[in-house]
Amino acid sequence: MNRRRFALGATATLAGLALVAGCGSSKTGTASAIAVDVQTKAKEIVTPYEGRPGAFPVTEKLSSPVPAGTRIAYIDNGNALVSLIFRLMQPAAAELGIDLYAVRAGTSASGVQAAFSTVVQQRPDAVINTAIDPALWDNQRRQLIAAKIPIVSLGTVAAASNGLVQPNGAAAFERQGRLQAAWLVANNDKSFEAVLYEHNELAYAAAVKKGFESELEELCPDCVVRVVQIPITEIGNKAPERIVSDLQAHPDTRGIVFQSSAAATGLPAKLKVAGLKDVQIVGANPLPTNLQYLKDKQSTVELGTDLNTLAWTAMDTAARLIVGQKLQENVDNGDALVHQFLRPEDITFDPTRGFSAYPDVADRFRALWNR
């Protein structure tokens, strides 16, 4: 039976910090061999995403152009990934003739609520949210829906009854977790201990964890998983120290899995200083910095998400909602995210420009939009 342990991130200082399991011992015991047929199954899950991306998410044409003067508000909480997606959306908005503008929100509940309250007062034609938990702005969500203002929400996993359109919702993020688990099983001959570093502040954390744990439970019941919280406010500063402290407290860890590779910013240097070499780093949603680490062989593999295509898909979705067009099933079901496993040899492009599975994304959407 699979042993599951949970370690919660604390707000205490890092000096002398040892993140411990909620129950049981950190000792994994003797590793057992992973059966050949199990590895074969894991490889069958992983292979469709190696060396090529998943299918392009949108194939149906936009039925009519958006009205002149259309305005869309984007909620930007300052997180690097959220801000990046806003920048990637701008060419798509320009192509559609949409005025896309950002409303700044902090990471606190009050800052988020204030930002959404501002948007309610502005009454744009649509709103785009990225990874900010709808529970934090529930009253404003109700007000926007009452005003018949469509909401496209990226990276959230709210129930359909909440009235949000989530192109990359629970289905896409559970797939992320399953793929990361399958990659570890496919690339290890024996059972192992893995740690999943997640951020509860990002709404899709539970979906990634569910996918990762359920797939690993099925493929490798002798493997061990710890789930450790990394506060989102520590990304880019304290996160590497927290991760190193956790790994030192759990020396049997062989797989490091990231909900978002942004948390790994600055980590390779810290791992080197700490002498932590015998670990596999399985990232996801890499930023340009993470892609450079991968190119330099400072990480093992990244589950790349084509954020550029996601940004254009979000604008396409908002446009269809504004003109009253029915959405494609995969968009409506939250499974319109393009994934691809990236190894060091796959970084043949400029990492500073990010990962793009479909470099011709603009041309593809222009054709769909009759531009």
Rank of each mutant, 00 (worst) to 15 (best):
M1N: 12
M1S: 15
F6M: 15
F6D: 14
L8W: 12
T11H: 11
L14G: 10
L19D: 12
A21T: 14
S25W: 09
S26C: 13
K27L: 13
G29Q: 02
A31Y: 03
V36G: 11
K41I: 14
K43D: 10
E44Q: 14
V46R: 00
V58N: 10
S64F: 07
Y74V: 05
L81D: 09
S83D: 03
L88P: 01
M89C: 10
A93T: 10
E95R: 15
E95I: 15
L96C: 01
I98C: 06
L100H: 04
L100S: 05
L100Y: 01
A105P: 00
S110Q: 11
S110I: 13
Q113R: 14
F116D: 06
S117D: 10
Q122P: 13
D125Q: 14
V127C: 02
I128D: 04
A131N: 11
R141N: 07
R141M: 07
L144F: 00
A147F: 06
K148S: 09
I149E: 02
L154C: 10
T156H: 03
T156K: 08
A159F: 04
A159M: 06
Q166F: 01
G169N: 00
E174N: 10
L179S: 03
Q180A: 09
A181N: 04
W183Q: 06
N188C: 09
K190S: 07
F192S: 07
A203Q: 09
A205E: 08
A206I: 13
A207R: 11
F212V: 10
E215Y: 12
L216D: 03
E218R: 15
L219I: 08
D222K: 12
I230A: 03
P231K: 11
I232S: 15
I235P: 11
G236Y: 04
A239Q: 05
E241F: 03
A249M: 03
A249L: 03
P251R: 08
S260F: 13
A263E: 03
T265I: 11
G266T: 11
A269G: 12
K270P: 05
K270H: 06
K270M: 08
A274C: 05
G275Q: 06
D278N: 15
D278Q: 14
Q280D: 12
P286N: 09
P286Y: 06
T289G: 11
Y293G: 03
Y293S: 02
Y293K: 05
L294S: 07
S299K: 12
T305V: 11
D306R: 09
D306Q: 09
W312F: 08
T317C: 01
A318R: 01
A319Q: 02
A319D: 00
L321C: 05
L321R: 07
V331H: 02
N333I: 11
G334Y: 01
G334A: 03
A336Q: 07
L337H: 02
L342A: 01
L342I: 01
L342E: 00
T348W: 00
F349L: 04
A357M: 03
F365L: 05
A367M: 13
N370E: 06
